[in-house]
Design a protein around this nucleic acid. Structure first.
Lengths: 416, 416
DNA sequence: ACAGTTTCCCGTAAATGC
DNA sequence: TGCATTTACGGGAAACTG
């Protein structure tokens, strides 16, 4: 029998997409302990079907009965595994939608999957039943962020086993609860959760400036339903896209702790200012819904004033064709004299760029030029090349230099 | 009733992917003319099912009967349209594969879809039958290039209506036939076919150097099955990926005729050499299986010798995040003195770059810097900026210039 | 083991329906 | 009509299978 490639989104077990295989192993079933003995003693039919329906109805496709045996019930667990189950919406005319909660969006609709068992023991038929924790059913993966938010909020705030009306009046959470959940979203899928500093930045996004966020209340709407001020997306959608970005494109850098990520611009300025020019840090975009990452570095202008500079955030699109480590290592800007230089020298606080990112760069992947070579020699130091060019120009047209001696350019810049 | 978004790959009508909807409207049916009268006079059941099977068997899913009426049979056509048909492979145990031609790969397997009609006319039942041209059934879109090659070769070389054994001994084609088909692959999906020059380049790839390709024979293996010399892919796979590249990423430029595309390196050198430096042309990558495009330009080195330069081909990946017109307009290289300059000035033969590509560039899409601005002023001409940098350096460390006066660099370069 | 083939399913785009 | 939701299917990758 075919094993599904990835039976449901593995880190988000209580969200089911129609048409995509899932197994009941990914649910936390209620285990009626007192019935364990009977189940394990006899063969039984274990038959799943969908129970508590809300506005939508679903049918379970796939093998929906199974004969349990002792081997499958190892370590005393009641669960029998059904693989290759899929859900399909039942579209009976238009009468299906007897929705008592039309206000709920689909990702707030909670469903229970009930599994029934008939046990025959010494001629006696016993009906057993167990059900999943509430699940959210989606039809397109683009609904996953909101669906998962529902699962998080539910499990953060209730111990009920079947409160499918939870989102008709969703309770508020405290910042402490939310912070733990947010950090867990990182620590459960990467090697690193969120630091106090990162969490504080996030708290400020949700609650505004405040001395101490502990105990502050956060509504479901604030977390997931309302757009952030001046933005076209909610806090959670923004954050979830960043989580996705981290997992798919910059996991290694995140695991190393090289990505400060969440930091306000004020604090960024405060910590970078005292640092030498070329010090930089990596930060997530605050304006991009899709998740973006950028870097900010310290620079001194000609007058010696310290400035912060940053690049437009890199999107997933761009990271598809180049790794972020390569981007950092190769990033160059034109200075005031049209010379290419790298403004990134030390990863904050003081890690040399090469030391941090060198090992994540591709080893100068031998390019395969279709013809000819590279005309620029890159061995001479910049300054020498510069002089060489000047001399070439002078050789071609010596009078230019004399003309320039009179220009304001030289007048301004020449010493003495 | 739902209309399919795109019922089958629209330009490649005789290839069917399992699980993807198709309609019989995309096939050329045999129309038994003498029966037209009967059909049109009466309602009839039009019932499709799959007929001639080879190693694989397929079932047709979807509504497979239909009552014909006069309205549907407009302009005297026999065809009734069945939408939402899909094919699914029939997996009966392992006995299904009674393959008489195990040597054929799946994209060489030809299938006929037969439609049956029962006509009741004045108490008489008449059985009618019509079938599609041979179709190729694939299970993944990655099989499309080879599948379509089969359709092309078949229709190029035979007028048979049901020669499903065609590929057990595929006939050879002449270059003239192949050339017409290849050009048609472009002209049917873009506004421009292939020129004689482009076709000649392709002929050379298939047949090697030759004075006159007319009448030369090309085998099916050469066209589609064997890898090209030194390459890991066949001629057709290479070309089809280029067609795909053109359609998805550079259609407008192709339609304008700006893309020479297929040109040998020898000929490229020959036509570019007499042109002034900065003249360039656009050419498809010969080494990339996935389809790539590059440009070659004329350059004069310091000694005044004319050179050809080209950039590594751009792939679909890269064109996803930047348009090719933008790449051309923004392309800069470092010259010998570490200064950024654009080596692309005139599109061959002599179209100013801006004139050709300016209108296809995004209008300097106002970037949204997360912080700070751009520190480099871009208004001074290169040479002045160069001098400015020199002077800055001298101001910081005047002794450097004196040291350099003694170095071999100056010794070599200085006049007199 | 391996290559040809199919399955799985995300993610974009389009269609649907309330 | 607009927006929430579902459907369609290309494309990458994993799984299957002779």
């Amino acid at each position: 029998e075919r094993q599904p490639c990835m039976p449901m989104h593995p880190d988000r077990p209580l969200v089911i997409k129609t048409g995509v295989q899932f197994t009941n192993k990914h649910f936390d079933f209620q285990k009626p302990e007192h019935l364990l003995y009977v189940i394990l003693k006899k063969e039984s039919h274990f038959m799943p079907f969908l129970d508590f329906l809300r506005s939508r109805k679903f049918n379970i496709l796939g093998t929906n009965t199974k004969v349990m045996n002792m081997e499958e019930s190892n370590n005393g667990s009641l669960s029998a595994e059904f693989k290759h189950l899929t859900l399909r919406e039942q579209r009976c005319g238009n009468g299906g939608r007897t929705n008592s909660d039309a206000s709920l969006i689909v990702t707030e609709e909670l469903h229970l999957i009930t599994f029934e068992t008939e046990v025959y023991h010494q001629g006696l038929k016993i009906d057993l039943e167990t059900h999943s924790l509430p699940v959210v059913v989606i039809s397109n993966i683009c609904q996953m962020p909101n669906a998962w938010a529902s699962i998080l909020w539910y499990n953060m705030l209730t111990n009920h086993q079947k409160n499918v009306n939870f989102f008709t009046k969703p309770p508020v959470g405290t910042w402490d609860q939310v912070a733990e959940v947010l950090s867990w979203q990182f620590s459960s899928t990467t090697k690193r959760g969120l630091t106090i500093e990162q969490l504080t930045t996030l708290a400020e996004k949700l609650l505004g400036p405040c001395v101490n966020y502990s105990g502050c209340q956060i509504t479901w709407a604030k977390f997931c339903k309302e757009n952030m001020a001046g933005k076209g997306f909610s806090f959670w959608v923004w954050l979830d896209n960043i989580i996705d970005l981290v997992k798919k494109y910059i996991l290694a850098l995140w695991n190393e702790g090289y990505i400060m990520g969440f930091i306000s611009k004020e604090r960024e300025r405060a910590i970078l200012s005292p640092k030498p020019p070329g010090t930089f840090l990596l930060r997530f975009s605050e304006s991009s819904k899709e998740g973006g990452i950028t870097f900010t570095w310290v620079e001194k202008d000609i007058s010696g004033k310290t400035q912060m500079q940053s690049v437009e955030p890199y999107t997933k699109q761009q990271l598809n064709s180049m790794s972020f480590a390569d981007i950092i290592m190769g990033y160059k800007i034109m200075d005031a004299t049209n010379i290419l230089v790298s403004p990134l020298v030390y990863l904050y606080p003081d890690i040399p760029k090469d030391e941090a990112f060198g090992k994540y760069c591709r080893p100068e992947a031998a390019p395969e030029p279709e013809m000819g070579g590279d005309s620029s020699s890159k061995s001479l130091p910049c300054f020498l090349r510069l002089l060489s060019e000047i001399l070439t120009c002078l050789r071609r047209c010596p009078s230019v230099f004399m003309d320039l001696m009179d220009s304001e350019l030289l007048g301004n810049g020449f010493p003495g």
